[in-house]
């Protein structure tokens, strides 16, 4: 670290390169995580079809999205279950 960087650190003002790097990192996390909405709709449709065999799903209360957390992509699905079919236990 040179004196200028040290001064920058002390005054809380980062060198512009560090700002650029940080902004890039954030924007790329977002860019890389964004998936076409049609693609997610298709996954949602098929998931509901599979799960509906066993449970009754409230489709209007179903949310599916994709995001990044700690370096990995996470596919998050929240499905509201109306009731579990009796036949599952038999």
């Amino acid at each position: 670290m040179n004196l200028r960087a040290l001064l920058a650190a002390l005054t809380g003002r980062q060198p512009s390169k560090e700002v650029a790097k940080e902004r890039l990192r954030l924007v790329l996390v977002h860019d890389r995580a964004s998936v076409a909405p049609e693609f997610l709709d298709k996954i949602k449709e098929e998931m509901i079809a599979v799960i509906s065999k066993y449970m009754e799903i409230d489709e209007s209360n179903t949310v599916i999205n994709m995001h990044h957390a700690e370096g990995t992509a996470v596919l998050e699905a929240n499905l509201a279950v109306k009731k579990i079919k009796r036949s599952v236990n038999t």
């Binding site: 200028r4 960087a5 920058a8 060198p15 390169k17 560090e18 790097k21 890039l24 990192r25 790329l28």
Partner: peptide, 16 residues
């Protein structure tokens, strides 16, 4: 510019 911390360096870009 890289030397004075005002431009992304080669390693920064490769890391990203």
């Amino acid at each position: 510019m890289v030397k004075r911390g005002d431009m992304l360096d080669i390693d920064d870009i490769l890391e990203i």
